[in-house]
Amino acid sequence: MADAKSGMRDLARRVRDKVGGRDSGLRARVERLEKELEADRQLHRKIAELSDVVTELLIPIQDRDEARVNEVLSTYRKSI
């Protein structure tokens, strides 16, 4: 009888550990996904800012010297 009780307690503990472990694993996974989602959302602003820098700053600066523009474009093409 004592063995049966002890066996039940042991089983209950193992089930609890398994479920609890899975819960905490899920929680950590959700937290990680939330962080990744947030980082993805923030990329929108970064894309917009870099697009703006290119179209409004970089291109006008370079446009003043066509030979230089061609050189930069050529170098860039070779570098990617």
Binding site: R41, L43, H44, R45, I47, A48, E49, S51, D52, E56
Partner: peptide, 11 residues
């Protein structure tokens, strides 16, 4: 519809 384009429009 893309937030990046909406931001660019505000610029």
């Amino acid at each position: 519809t893309a937030p990046a384009d909406i931001i660019l429009e505000t610029y």
